[in-house]
Amino acid sequence: MTPPRARPSRRHATKKRVASEDKEFFQLRLYVAGRTSRSQAALQNLKMICESHLQGQYRIEVVDLLVNPQLAKGDQILAVPTLVRLLPPPVKKIIGDLSHIERVLVGLDVRPLPRGAVS
């Protein structure tokens, strides 16, 4: 339904990719509007969380809506910062500066303690 969109800005794109077939790969997109302190905080928080819980199985792409306003439509972005989990499905959204680590993990469906993760 969504029209083909322009490639998102990759200015802050951070790539960390390690081959690991047994684990799910997380493709994350962080929408911000300008380089505000809030957006910087969100990016810092996100990097920190990913490094400690999803090491080697994630990719973050940052979209600045002030640079690419037309991209707000595609992922139905209302609030900034918004983190969109594109992969694995289903698509999930977390809004806010991601300062509450537990809630971010719940939102991303990442189990904080891998040992307890069965089923």
Binding site: I77, V80, G96, S99
Partner: peptide
Amino acid sequence: EETGDYNLDG
């Protein structure tokens, strides 16, 4: 999911 501060700039 909401976590932390945000605004409706989107």
